[in-house]
Design a protein around this nucleic acid. Sequence first.
DNA 1: TAGATTGTTAATCGATTAACAATC
DNA 2: TAGATTGTTAATCGATTAACAATC
Lengths: 215, 215
Amino acid sequence: MEEKEISQAVIGRLPRYFRYLGELKDEGVERISSQELSELMKVTASQIRQDFNNFGGFGQQGYGYNVEHLYKEIGRILGLDVIHNFIIIGAGNLGQALGNYLNFERRGFIFRGMFDINPQLVGRDVRGVKVMPMEEMERFVRENDIDIAVLTIPKTSAVEVAERLAANGIRAIWNFAHVDLNVPEGIQVESVHLSDSLMKLSYNISRYKKEKENS
Amino acid sequence: MEEKEISQAVIGRLPRYFRYLGELKDEGVERISSQELSELMKVTASQIRQDFNNFGGFGQQGYGYNVEHLYKEIGRILGLDVIHNFIIIGAGNLGQALGNYLNFERRGFIFRGMFDINPQLVGRDVRGVKVMPMEEMERFVRENDIDIAVLTIPKTSAVEVAERLAANGIRAIWNFAHVDLNVPEGIQVESVHLSDSLMKLSYNISRYKKEKENS
DNA sequence: TAGATTGTTAATCGATTAACAATC
DNA sequence: TAGATTGTTAATCGATTAACAATC
């Protein structure tokens, strides 16, 4: 049974559906039509129905979608029904910020360890997790069923650290370093390039300024 | 003279070109062909040429592109040739991480102020900038030519704060709160939804696991 | 049953890739 | 000049939107 590949365009929209459905659920809304959801989220109803139908029929003609059911299904599709253990490499400001972020825990992402090359940071406590020296990273990954490594280290060391993680069975890397990682096939990489995002914002500021001047 | 609108798909790729060209420049590379760049960046040479040609001819037939010139031009297109003053709302871990991030300064983004509702944080120093109470935000934005506000506050207050910023002449919002902001036309919003990014990673982990099971 | 709304096919739109003439 | 490589047009591919038959 060949499952058709879902495009990354669709995947990229799932977390946003998940967020809106969670809010609707918390407000006690039981059912919603693609039309209503489309007005709320400012996307077309057509797109919503197409997106959901990639994964099978979650709705019911004449009724719409059951909010709670749809919410759970999308959570499952996103893999939020399983526990993911993660570690953070780099105990600087950003690493600590992510370690302290409680919402990840709610989604099944459990903060298991933190590593840094700086001996000054080793031993520090971040939400109950002690910062360990980098030399212990490989062993820790192997022995503690770590799925995800969060890289909040400079780009100069990110490539080498990613290789070490890959060699020790990491499943995924959430990369905050400003470099493109090349890891073996089968290891998932999701990069958050903050400065790229800021540059896009900068572009849009300039563009709007020019538009105004020309009008 | 009507300038054609550049698609966000193209804009989204510019920072990455900028990064690679910067590295090539630092390595002393003078010229590069779309073919060579395509191998380096793992995109098609066709796309590279199409992308650059949205902004005019930066290359030369039979020669390729001058690295330094192209780098500068892309920087200019991205608006990195002008100074942008920014403030950070929310002096928690993430706010402090972004305030301490020196690379933004190098690109013309100058850290001017930081605000928090928590009186315990007010007065604290982040890279030479004192945390101010929220009540001073509006006046500060008006009087200090602030272009960008970085929102590292909970979603519950983000919408209201965004409105206050909009009313006081902010040009752009870099939003880290997990909520979609609706601001008046002309104010640019770029959102970084960290948990959305993590969920995409989670999806890809699950998908790969299923693929392996099916093979 | 009649009305509503999905699931799904078809049409459109936009983005990517291929091809090649222009030109350095 | 000959070779290389761009700039640009044309072809393809994929994603979005529209339309409507199926069905609850």
